[in-house]
Structure formats: structure tokens, C-alpha cells
Design a protein around this nucleic acid. Sequence first.
RNA 1: GCUGGUGUAGCUCAGUGGUAGAGCAGCGGUUUCGUAAACCGCAGGUCGUCGGUUCAAGUCCGACCACCAGCUCCA
Length: 646
Amino acid sequence: MEKIKITFPDGTIKEFDKGTTGRQIAESISKGLAKEALAVEVNGEVWDLSRAIANDASLKILKWADDGGKYAFWHSSAHLMAEAIENIYPGTKFSIGPPIENGFYYDIDMGDHTLTGDDLSKIEETMYKFAGRDVPYQREEKQWEDAVVYFKKKGDPYKLELLEDLKGQTISFYHQGNFTDLCYGPHIPSTGRIKAIKLLSVAGAYWRGSEKNKMLQRIYGVTFPTKQELDEHLYRLEEAKRRDHRKLGQELELFLLTPKVGGGLPLWLPKGTIVRETLENFLREEQKKRGYLSVVTPHIGNINLYKTSGHYPYYKDSQFTPVKVEEEEYLLKPMNCPHHFQIYAAKPRSYRDLPIRLAEFGTVYRYEQSGELNGLIRVRSFTVDDSHMFMRQDQLKQELCDVIELIQLVFNTLGFSDFKTRLSFRDPKNKDKYGGEDEMWVQAEKDIKEAAELTKLNYYIGIGEAAFYGPKIDFMVRDALGRTWQLGTVQVDYVMPERFNLEYVGADGQKHRPVVIHRAPFGSMERFMGVLIEHFAGEFPLWLAPLQAVVLPITDQHLEYAQEVFQQLKAAGIRCELDDRNEKIGYKIRDWETKKVPYMIVVGEKEKEANTISVRQHKKGDLGSMSRDAFLSSTLEAIKQKTITL
RNA sequence: GCUGGUGUAGCUCAGUGGUAGAGCAGCGGUUUCGUAAACCGCAGGUCGUCGGUUCAAGUCCGACCACCAGCUCCA
């Protein structure tokens, strides 16, 4: 028998018979591994365990812990769900059912029938029943024509449309039980591996993602090899909901969204404003150190500004309707740049003055579709921590590096580690979408990439994600529910200076065109706050906490001493309150714990006698008694250092 | 904007055709208390809005509004 050489991840090489399968290889290693194996990665491609391996290959057995294993598992689960659906609702038409980050979905067309929660339970039950049969997933390869015949006979227009794109290729089908699907695979060995099933939700989704197409019903689900893992997953989902900034924002009185003002128009309550202003002041200080100049501009501007900038035709649909005043049209400003350009252009600029960095916390207004609004994270009115930096070409790379360094400082100070950086470049196949000359784009993308390298950014490249006027660096973070959002951004712009005819006089006495960087470390104060609330689960570090300490007298016989302590903390600049309510100490402690106040200062007879205070820290409990000065100095130091863990 | 779900007191929620409820929060009292909820009382709602069916609607029907999830979009 002919042999092939299999290389394992640890570098060992073993010989097997030609045509051996992943399952046989797993079995040859250990029984336990064979039992756990879900799929096999052959030369970087994920295959079914039952597929014969014909040539030398590097190979990895995939288990649940491997992404490839999970994806096969969930992909197979989607097929199991489809089988259950077809069994209960014959005639259902299936489109696509892929695995996703946390489970799987299937988009289906059930004609007039709309799925309800009861339907989901029924499907789930049937899935359990079918999984219990423990039947194998079997691959079958067909000629394209035969595949078309099959789905014509079955009457599945979506599958036929998918087949159109695969014309002439060999088509793979997968069978399990009574269900057959067009599928590239791979799949797990058998349905019996799926032990825990939860169908989570049903929602509309357009066929092939286009709003011009028919809306199908999408069922989201998740499955696991054990019940325990499902329970843990469901618990994590509940935890995430507890962190939801909309819920915490209401509980902690940070902000208010009310239809009486309008969708996506948040009102900042006093406590939320403290956090927000503290963040703003932090950035202002850092910008001051770096030579930024603060400016203030109005909330509306002549529509011609946006016609000049080119924003108007590109983004007409996402702006509020212009207002007409004395024959002129004004727009609620959707961005700050045109205003800042006018400040630059207000007088002649010399090459010696550059770079000029104009900064403003500028509130902008964008018309987002109603279905898009989402707490503070997607709003119609938000404040950009904006700056427009005007410079010579030779200064660009250094300025980019400095800006990235500033953003890194901001993210590190707030303890954001789970963020990604995307270099958003244009799509070279779709150049019409973008303004400006070709060589400008090539130069700008090169500069951005070099700056990213120099500052050791961990980045990936997003083709087609650029702004119309230039490429960007986008800082992306995830919210409590795992959705990814763009926060900070740095954009290189050669187009606007041209359109606004911005100039400076060079050493040669000639007029030159400056380059502009648009940048915002927070991105939008609203979105950033929303993500921050979830990041800290409402438990802000001391320097950001709206209320930093609260003084709790045991009885009103200690009120006078409590007053003295309170006044001292207040005078030292600590945000604090005195709780002189007629309540027992346990009640007060519980109350302030739920409000997530970092420190509680308990004072009673003992403390009054010894001239000390008892300190209780949020979530940690009693720290014991200490002198007032000791508490003050350590607290003030932690605030100054912007310490994240209390 | 599209599909589906939800909407009862400041908050969390009960109430499936027959006089709007509870807990917490609030207010008034009693209690003076040592590290996560003392006790008594009071007040608080055009049941999202508008229209319809009915002797009678929080409850059934319709339209609209808002919010939630997803889709599409996102400077």
C-alpha cells in the first residue's frame, strides 16, 4: 500500500496509508482524541474527518477548543435546525445557514407563516430529538447539472440562485437523516455530538443582504457539546445585559433619552456630565501640552460650506433638512471641518506657523435612520473631540505618530486593552467613490502605514473603508453585547485643502497647499461614554466617579463630627456627600453600594473619640480605620494618577 | 427605512372583558442603631397615543408613536 507523510503541529512526521482519513489518524493517536475530534485541518483547509487524504500534508485534529472545530459544530447545528424546520413546516425554502462568532443562523422563507417564540421551542425540541438519533453527516459530490435538477425538483429558488454562481464546478451536498443541503462543508461526524441547544431569536434579514430583495426570517441559535457550556454561555449573555450602558445610564442617572426631546438626542444628567467633563478636561490638558489651540464654532453653517467640502452630495441622506433664513440655506453641521478650515483661511499662513492644530469639542448632527439609533452608541446629536491639523507634507508622518501616541495614551489611561486598529483604505476597484488625485491616495496610504509601523500599532487593513476624502486609522472596540464600534479616528486629507483653497507661504516665497489631519481620540463623547460605562460596568475609577466618597454617620449624635470630615474632604476637592438620613448604617451602606460609590466613610463614637475615619471600599468592604490625612493623601494621589483599579 | 417583539406608578413587574395592584424609590412619623434592606402610615397611574367593537376595554380589533433585537446604512 502506498504511504503518505503527515506532519503534525508539533513538527513530528508519521506515515499513514494513502487515503487514510482524519478520523483514522485521530484514532491512531488516542481514543480520547478521536472521541473529541470534530474536524481536521489539512494544509490549512478544514475538512470532514471522514474525507480521504491522498497526499503528504500537514495536519491538525480540530476539537471544540479550536475555532475551526466550533465553526464545523455550529455549521452542522444549522443543518440540524433546518432538518427540524423542514420536518415541522414542510415546504419551507432555505437560503443560507452559516456559523457565526457565537453560534449560527439560518435564513428561511416560510411564505405567510411568521415564527413565534412557541415555534422556536418546537423547533428546539425537534432538534434535540433528531440530535439524539446520532446520525452521520455525509458528504456527496455531484455534477452541477444534477444539483440544479435536485433543487428544481425540490422547488428551492434560493439554492438555485446560489448555484448560478457555482456554474460548472463540482457541487458538494451534505446529508444527515432526512435532510440534504447544498453546502461546501465541513461538518462534524454526527448529530449526536450536539448535546445542548438554544434557539435565541428570530429577526428579519434581506436575501443576500440587499434591501431591494425579499426579507427572510433569520433564526439565531447556539449549541454546545455539553449542557454546562450552554448554561455558562447563557449566563454570560445575562451578565452582558447587566452591563448595558442604557440600563446603567438610567440606574446611575448618567443620561436620559426621551421621546419628548427626540430619538437619538441624549440629555446629560448632572452625574453623567461630571464623567464626561472629566474626560474632556483630561484630553484638553494633554492637547495643551502638545500645542493644540482651542476654538469654538457655531452649530449651523451655510450650506455652501458643505457643497464646497463635497460632503453635501455624498451624504445628503444622512443630514437634517436645511433651514432657510433670508434666502440663504443653513445646515445643522454634520461635521466641524469646514468651520475650522475658515479659521485657518482667515489670514495668510507661513510655513513657520505650521503645524497649526485647531481643537474643539464640537457637537454635530446627523440624521440616522430610526432603526439605527442605539442608546449613546448611535445617536443623532454627538460631540466630536475634534481637531484639524494643518501642516506641510514633510511634517505629516511625525504628526501622525504624535496623534497615534496621544490616542494610545487615552486608551491606556482608561484601561482599554480589547481594541483593534483598522487602516481604512480605499477600494481601488471603485475609485469613483473617492475624491482627489490618485497619487495623493497612494502617498497618504503609505504615510499611514509607515506611521502605524513606527508606533507599533497592532492593525489590520480594511479595503473600501476609507472616507471619501482620504484614508483613515480607526480604533475599534466591542460593546457589552459583542458588537464592534468605531471610536477614535485619524484621517489624512489632501482633498479638502484643495477644495477650500487652503494655502501657506513657503520658504521659497511661493504659495503651497497644506495637508490636513482630522482626528478624534474619543471619536464621539456619547459613544465613548456608552462604551466606557459598559467597560467599567458603571463602576468608574476614582478619578472619573461622579461621586467619589460619601460620609455616613452611625447616628445623629455623630453628625457634627461627620460634618467636619465631610467639609475636609470637600475642601480637598473630593466629590462627596454627607448621608444624614435617619437610617441604620446597614441600610446606607447597601444603598451606596448599589450606587457604586468608590468610598464610604463610616464615622461613629469610636472614630469621633480617636479622631479617625472608617473606610469602606466599593465591592471590597471594610478597610478598617485610618487617619483622615492618610485617607486624603492616598485618595488624592489615586485621583491625580488616574488609577484604574481603586 | 424593513421584519419581528415590547409598551401598566420614578424603577422592577403582576393583572386575558366586570370598581387599576405589589415591591422598591418618594413624603410624614416612630426608632438613635457599627459595615448590603428597622417599623407604621401617606401619596403616586387618561394602563404609549388616537380611533373602533361591546351594556362594559389595561385586556379584543385597526392605525400611529416610542423602545428593543436583527437586517440595510454609517462622515
